[in-house]
Amino acid sequence: MTNEATTPSGQPLGISHKPSQTEAMFTKLKADNKPAFIGYLPYGFPDPDTSLDALRTMVEHGVDAVEIGLPYSDPVMDGPVIQAASQIALHNGETIRRVFEAVETVANAGGVPLIMSYWNLIYHYGVERFAADFENAGGAGLITPDLIPDEAGEWIEASDRHGLDRIFLVSPDSADERLDVVSRNARGFVYAAARMGVTGERATIDASPEVLVERTRKAGAANVCVGIGVSTPEQGAKVGSYADGVIVGSALVHTLLNDDSRTAKDASEGLRDLAAKTESLAAGIHGAR
């Protein structure tokens, strides 16, 4: 009897030797002494069609890789801005099945497509099914904020079969032993959370992310990217001076929201503001060194 993880003859699928899109991106940028700019946006926000336009806009105006968020009803890591955007997307009826349209959009625009998702969504969709659909859409890797390597056996196997990157998180409170486990099991890069807590824009970025990046590299990680709190070109330049990549979420999502931070702007206005914000952040991040 065969299953989704076997060949038609019933043999287990092997390990893919397809090169990592994410690692190729870092190699190219490091040759130019530039950090990567990774931008986040939830799929389906402010509506399905506009979200695809927004993803294209981000790539066209300087984002190297796009972290496509899967809207979730209980986003424990997300701050109020991303929660508001996710609720709008959920209200529009967005599902995990349709996020692969976003993956294809980013890939066709020339960006590296990543997905950020809480594990419950992947688990209920089907781990092998998700990996296959993600690969077929041109996806590069999955960021799992609530999945640790110790509990990720099924995902590690599926991602190896389909040549997908595994991006786990570390924080300033992570012990050296935890950094070692994450670095050994990650593929593509390690996501260093600048601080404990939820996402959101911040007026300042303290020194703890730089120490965390150094510790994670010592643990064996080839690429370490910093996220949570970066919202200005100046902050992006500061983080980009020592990190391999800078992850920006809330500041980009915010451009598509009205002043009440709960409703979406007119699409043309929002996309114009998104393009301007992306360009300014890209200039700061790519010019960090």
Rank of each mutant, 00 (worst) to 15 (best):
4 E>W: 12
4 E>G: 10
8 P>C: 02
12 P>K: 00
15 I>M: 01
19 P>F: 02
25 M>P: 01
33 N>S: 13
38 I>Y: 02
45 F>R: 00
49 D>R: 12
53 D>V: 08
55 L>K: 10
55 L>N: 09
56 R>E: 14
61 H>W: 11
65 A>Y: 04
65 A>F: 04
67 E>M: 11
69 G>K: 13
70 L>T: 10
77 M>K: 10
96 I>Y: 06
101 E>A: 13
113 P>C: 01
113 P>E: 01
114 L>D: 04
116 M>P: 09
116 M>V: 10
128 E>Y: 10
129 R>M: 14
134 F>L: 08
140 A>T: 00
141 G>K: 04
142 L>A: 06
146 D>G: 03
151 E>A: 09
152 A>W: 01
153 G>A: 06
154 E>C: 03
159 S>T: 01
160 D>V: 00
167 I>P: 06
171 S>W: 04
172 P>V: 05
175 A>M: 15
176 D>E: 15
176 D>V: 07
177 E>W: 11
178 R>D: 07
184 R>Y: 03
192 A>H: 01
200 G>T: 07
201 E>A: 13
204 T>P: 10
208 S>N: 12
215 R>M: 11
228 I>F: 15
231 S>T: 08
235 Q>I: 13
237 A>F: 04
240 G>M: 05
247 I>G: 01
253 V>K: 04
254 H>P: 07
254 H>D: 15
256 L>S: 00
267 A>R: 08
284 G>A: 11
287 G>H: 13
